[in-house]
Computed example of a mutant assay.
Amino acid sequence: MKPGNYYVRKQDAGIQLLAWLKVSLKLDGGSCNQLIAAGCIFIDKKQVRDPKLQLKGGARVFLKPSPKPLKTNKKKAEARVVIAMPEIIYFDDDIAIVEKPSGLTTVHHAQDKKEFSERDRKFLPSTLQDILPDILSVHTKKKVPFVRAVHRLDKETSGVLVFSLNKKAESSLGKQMREKKFTRRYIALVRGQIENQEIRSILVRDRGDGRRGSSLKDPDGELAVTHVKKIESLGDISVVECELETGRTHQVRIHLGESNAPLCGEKIYDRPINGRPKPDPSGIDRIALHACYLSLEHPTSGKVMSWKSSIPHDMQGVIERFREKNKAPE
């Protein structure tokens, strides 16, 4: 578990701090007590030193770097997943702009829920839409009863999303999405080189090998348009910006993969039909795609608003490594 912000899930409410740290950080009790005693644990911005403190669902846990190295408890392999804390960039009575961390699902698809009974749905992993009401209530100091995702990011994709906080806003933002009034841009790390271009294709559920992809034959496919701009060439990888004209499932991932420049970290759309994956020199352990810019009309005021998000540390680390690798000798 790295230093930073983390979130206590509803189902973990009532667990004592020491027990939560042991399970979440995969550390032994002595190391967890060391963190607590050293003042490394903050809950909702308050430093805590009581290992028996009972945690509340929705609490923000901030972990400072430990002054001493800690040993991982390998026996805790079954430890539950700790969700990195989403960041609230902006909110008002109508919308919330959130920066989603990689590894957190935006919202369960309706089809996913249909595959489980009502009882079993309770055990599905929490999504950003599930946990957001609790996080927003900390900011607003009141209950937030209505939160709906207007669009989605893939689980491994990080970046900016908008959520509606009432039905009127949901309707307005949904209409804007359909009328293509949103501006959405992504920063991506891709394998190899790619030139500036507009990629336009018809996307289908099965391109011929069980994967989504482009087809010229399927009349039931959906038009997808992505504008690609090269930002930086770094030898074996490139940094590109992708602006969506349409918002189809896995659109950026598919279009880059079919252009022989699959995303770094991509494990599905990284090969031609029945072909081998293109080698990935990045070493990144997730899809290197980040939603860096979002613009829309506010559902009440009508004012055009926009938000930016910086490249996350894991992607920036890959960029710095390849810059150093490709630096000309002095």
Rank of each mutant, 00 (worst) to 15 (best):
G14L: 07
Q16A: 03
V23F: 06
S24Y: 05
G29M: 02
N33R: 14
Q34T: 14
K45T: 12
V48K: 00
P51E: 06
G58N: 05
A59N: 14
P65Y: 03
L70N: 01
L70E: 00
N73G: 02
E78T: 12
Y90C: 10
Y90F: 15
D92N: 13
I97W: 08
G103A: 11
E118N: 12
T127E: 06
L132N: 11
S137D: 10
P145Y: 09
D154G: 11
D154W: 09
T157V: 15
S158C: 04
L161S: 09
S164M: 02
L173S: 01
R178Q: 14
G192Q: 10
S201H: 05
V204P: 09
V204Y: 06
D220R: 13
A224Y: 03
A224H: 06
V225G: 09
K229L: 08
K230T: 11
L234H: 09
I237H: 08
R253V: 02
H255M: 06
E258S: 01
P262M: 07
P262K: 03
C264W: 00
G265A: 04
I268P: 02
R271G: 00
R271I: 00
P281M: 03
D285E: 12
S309H: 06
S310M: 05
P312Y: 04
P329T: 08
P329R: 13
